[in-house]
């Protein structure tokens, strides 16, 4: 089971660093959605199903949509 933990942490770190280094803000919000997904699995792994369900309910649809609406109303490229 340790291999699942290592894999999830690897995806988490890669997506997190990628979200920081991107110039396009929409791509960053997609990568933040991936980070939220991996964090939800990790919460389930350490035995906290309530927190995992909260993270899933908010990070799956709502968080990405709010970021996209905010990016649509302002600029798209980071200076």
């Amino acid at each position: 089971m340790i291999i699942v933990d290592i894999l999830i942490c690897l995806v988490l770190l890669a997506a997190g660093v990628g979200a920081m280094l991107q110039r396009n803000l929409v791509a960053s919000s997609v990568l933040v959605g991936v980070v939220s997904l991996m964090v939800s699995i990790l919460f389930l792994r350490i035995g906290a199903p309530d927190v995992a369900m909260t993270e899933a309910a908010i990070g799956a649809g709502l968080s990405t949509v709010i970021f996209l609406i905010a990016v649509r109303r302002t600029e798209e490229e980071e200076q």
Partner: peptide, 9 residues
């Protein structure tokens, strides 16, 4: 597991 906040979301 769950509750008011998760169901509302």
């Amino acid at each position: 597991p769950g509750g008011g906040f998760q169901g509302g979301a």
